[in-house]
């Protein structure tokens, strides 16, 4: 990224001063549609350099160090949808915590818009596994939570919450309490809440893991639609390779112990995407297989050497980790 671009980005991207309070910029209300002619031209928004994360474990007098992430480098462009896959325990959630500013790297840097991450802030929205809705707040009040922290005025909060609840298809449920919703609906609320305060970046940790297959497909398409409308930068973690390929412009594959990026695979599928036809197309399945292979040959490197090449055609592309 050129110095020029970087300066321009910093100007455009200033988390604290982004929008005057009381006026959330509802990008989604415009109907621009994302095009993917030249994604490489978008400036880099998130830059992780030689980052490592060490957990310090205190067991009474015994102090242990556990390196969860090491030699981690990654660049995510503005407006990009990136998914991350990797074996369980490889440090994906750890990575999102770092990006959210909830914890800090041992070495290296995490830069967002050219600035070091110093802690959590409303320029990033975090959708955690397990919804994390406030059970005493109505759906609409849940969505307003970030805006309250932002000190947005009441009327404006209402309007923003309504707009995003409409967007995720929950019109009419504003005054329900979370326990009155299904799992898929709760997930939608969590997404609406993260989008509502207009963060530049969305961090999503296996958000669809707890819903059934059909709802999951629906939510995937919905998320893509919202992304196309809002131009957010999304980092999305999943255990399903198919989901990773379907959603992303690029899929990052991680290895474990310690966690690091193994390979980044470009997904050159057309946008907008529709589940049905796309997921059964040979090209889609070829990419799924490519990611699958990248994930699996790290686990048994030697085995791969003697592997029969024909076996590749027999692998179920739906394989989840």
């Amino acid at each position: 990224m050129s110095a020029n671009q970087e300066a321009a980005l910093q100007k455009e991207y200033s988390p604290q001063l982004g929008q005057p309070p009381g006026q959330p910029n509802l990008n989604l209300l415009k109907t621009e549609t994302r095009t993917q002619e030249n994604p490489e031209e978008d400036p880099v928004l998130i830059k992780i350099e030689n980052m490592s994360r060490v957990y310090h474990i205190n067991r009474g007098r015994k102090k242990e160090r556990f390196t969860a992430i090491q030699d981690f480098n990654l660049e995510v462009r503005q407006g990009e949808f990136m998914t991350i896959v990797g074996p369980s325990g490889c440090g994906k959630s750890t990575l999102l915590d770092l990006l959210a500013g909830l914890s800090f790297p041992e070495t290296g840097h995490i830069l967002i818009g050219g600035q070091e991450v110093k802690g959590p802030a409303l320029d990033r929205g975090f959708v955690m596994q397990g919804y994390a809705l406030f059970p005493w707040r109505t759906i609409s009040k849940n969505v307003e939570f970030g805006l309250e922290i932002k000190k947005t005025g009441k009327a404006e909060r209402r309007r923003a919450a309504q707009a995003y609840l409409d967007l995720v298809g929950l019109t009419g449920f504003e005054n329900r309490l979370p326990y009155e919703l299904s799992g898929g609906m709760k997930q939608r609320v969590a997404i609406a809440r993260a989008f509502a305060f207009e963060p530049q970046v969305l961090l999503m940790d296996e958000p669809f893991a707890a819903v059934d297959a059909q709802t999951r497909e629906l939510l995937q398409e919905e998320l893509l639609r919202i992304w196309e409308k809002t131009h957010k930068t999304i980092i999305f973690i999943t255990h399903s390779i198919e989901e990773a390929v379907f959603l992303a412009q690029r899929v990052a594959v991680m290895t474990s112990n310690p966690g690091t990026i193994k390979e980044i695979i470009d997904i050159d599928l057309p946008i907008p995407r529709k589940s049905g036809d796309l997921k059964s197309s040979p090209h889609f399945n070829w990419i799924v297989h490519k990611v699958w292979k990248s994930l699996h040959n790290q686990e048994d490197e030697e085995l791969r050497e003697t592997e029969n090449p024909d076996i590749e055609n027999e692998i179920d592309p739906d394989t989840a980790l």
């Binding site: 500013g101 909830l102 409303l122 955690m128 939570f145 970030g146």
Partner: peptide, 11 residues
């Protein structure tokens, strides 16, 4: 997870 969720929004 509720505390973490609120903290992630810079509360």
């Amino acid at each position: 997870i509720l505390i973490k969720s609120a903290r992630s929004m810079g509360i």
